[in-house]
Design a binder for these strands. Sequence first.
DNA 1: GCCAACGTTGGC
DNA 2: GCCAACGTTGGC
Length: 157
Amino acid sequence: MRYWLMKSEPSAFSIDDLRKKNVSGWDGVRNYQARNFMKAMTLGDRAFFYHSSQEPVGIAGIMEICGLAYPDPTQFDKKDPHYDPKAKPGAPVWFHVDVKFLRKLPRLVGLFELRASPALKRMALFRLGRVSITPVTAAEWNVVLAMAGGDGPFIDK
DNA sequence: GCCAACGTTGGC
DNA sequence: GCCAACGTTGGC
């Protein structure tokens, strides 16, 4: 199992929106690196749900990859803001995975805390600042869960 | 709302 | 295939 971090602006789609839907396609990604990371995902991988752009910015919850990469339908929809005229149904450009809500963290772990943690210095999140999906190591995953705290040990099960 | 960083596009 | 111009992301 591998770990990932996936960004979304909560005004567009938040951890609470995912909780209500339970399962959702992670659509609208229009960056090749992020797309390639989604293609590398396997069923059962875990991902942090990261709230970007609006305070509080940081990791809000965790989810599971429950559908392998397949063409993102919004690329073909002229009315969608993510419409891409380069893409044709026979030759899709953009792919996305399905994600399933697992849980919110006991508290949101803010970006400033992530930056401040020596154990997280090398997170791909910082190196690939403008890529909305980045890999996370198992060690980083556990550090973030420990930072989130909660009542007793926070078990990712 | 500003703007730095950086990915993407397109002219040559 | 380079690189300047442009557009977008995302932190602040």
